[in-house]
Design a protein around this nucleic acid. Sequence first.
RNA 1: GCACUCGUAGCUCAGUAGGAUAGAGCACCAGAUUCCUAAUCUGGGGGUCACAGGUUCGAUUCCUGUCGAGUGCGCCA
Length: 549
Amino acid sequence: MFESIKKNIKQALLIDYVDLEIDVKSIQLELLFDEKGDLTTNICMQYAKLLSSSPKKIAESILQNFKHPLIKEIQLAGPGFINFFFNDDGFESLLKFQKEPNSQAKSINIEFVSANPTGPLHLAHGRGAVVGDVLSNLYEFNGYKVDREYYVNNTGNQINEFLSSILFSISETHSLSLPYQQYYKGDYIKEIANSCYEKFKESINDNISTDQKNEIANFAIDNLVNKSLEVLKSSNINFNSVIYETDIMKKNHFSKALSVLKDKKLVYDGKLKQPKDYKKTKKENNISIFKSSNFGDDEDRALTKNDGTPTYFANDIAYHLDKVDRGFDKLINIWGADHLGYLTRLKSALKSVKDDIDFEVVFCQIVNLKRNNVIQKLSKREGTILELDSLINEIGTDNFRYFMCYRKNDTHMDLDIDLIKKENKENPIYYIQYASARTFSVLKKKNDIVDKSLIWSSELKILYKKLFQWHDVITQASNRNEVHLIAHYLENLASCFHSYWSASKARPELRFLDDNQNISSHHEYLLTRFQSTLNDGLSILGIKSKTEM
RNA sequence: GCACUCGUAGCUCAGUAGGAUAGAGCACCAGAUUCCUAAUCUGGGGGUCACAGGUUCGAUUCCUGUCGAGUGCGCCA
């Protein structure tokens, strides 16, 4: 419909400007939601320079020559905008528009949460979890085949320290005086330590074999990972695959990647300046270094450690190449703000190995918790860490999901616990669900469907235009990986509906049901269309729409 | 110090591939309701879009600088 209007704009222009070369796609035609009109284009201002003419003169030409069966009036406005007004057919055709099914089903891997398996999930993970899940829903809605992935970094020092902390706890509880240090604290360590002791008490002594240690560590890691997955599952966040770093390492992707990078002269053997707090092996071995400074990184980055083992960076390259091997067309990672500086190095390394890789990262900024109007600084040291589990229990799944994705993902956010818990009109979810409930109420009470034409009040026009906008919203949300657009649209859509509803208080002829509780076929279609749009939007957010309050 | 993200109403935040009078919710003020659920609606006050330059028909949006906030800056993961 927009296309045919654009085509007619072009034709109108060509009458006075015969030589003008103009691509229909370049014509911007946007919906208006106020009394200025229904559609607008700025084409006259765009082409003023090229045609060496004033916008208003060009506009006059269009005004004179433009015709379209769905447009009843066009006006010149402001500095050179052309505004269009729909006729009744024009408005009705807005809801005839149907989304075309996506024929080329692409596959996409979305990796999110991927928390270190050394502690329970907390607030910061919550935002990434919801954004990742909602983004997955969105891509699925758009016809993609989505794989939701959770990655477990079960190697490295952190695991040694984790295990040491568990053994320390066991030693303390059972007065065994084993030689282990405490790195991680907290009740969860004690709990895991107890489970480990129950299972492995036979072999826990002064001299635990390496194999036994690995077994204990793996048991403890699985314990934590499963607990985290359970917490997420309780909010309907589920994963298709859980991938362990150790399994990826076995596949040898890294050595292949290394040789590609070496061929491209992007890797050299050498030394980097000694890192801070460098107390471990002081060997002066050369290490493999990736020239990430070629790609705008601050400095080159180590791929191997002094003892020859791969760094986290190296394993991460391998992990992402494994995703490519598994045949995904597109990769998206959800990362916390603490990884901002890490993107350049990983992306440039991946592009260097495989230049056609479609790899994007969505960053989730810090979430502050606000209680009693005071922002609480959450820190492990202060003991003010809030486990995700208890947050969700406190505010409920729907609130958790909604409030974690109604702000743009890459800006800081204050989560006002007191406001969320109010569960009244200040809470947007209730506002949206109330609109849904109203539609169900009408359809439940209706008697017969009658043939009666619509009265095009300004509120109804806006509601039609808003419903039409849904397709643009999901397109833009997935193009930009911004899920908050959906939440905002739903609030907006609900608001348009409530306005129309209330307008009928003053004008009873606008009501859905007449005196005999009959409904017009147009109204019935409008209501079901509204319901399905609301329902689509809410299910992308992972929230159930209500049929009654 | 360097890099990235950001600075919009009293508060929490949208918006900006450069466009008309910069929006919403909350708070505040004034109204609406025999009615399909008042968990709603309508109207009002409230802004130097941090500041200063630049680019042009036009800048909150792009560029540069300044100030302020946050995050990151390991051969940790």
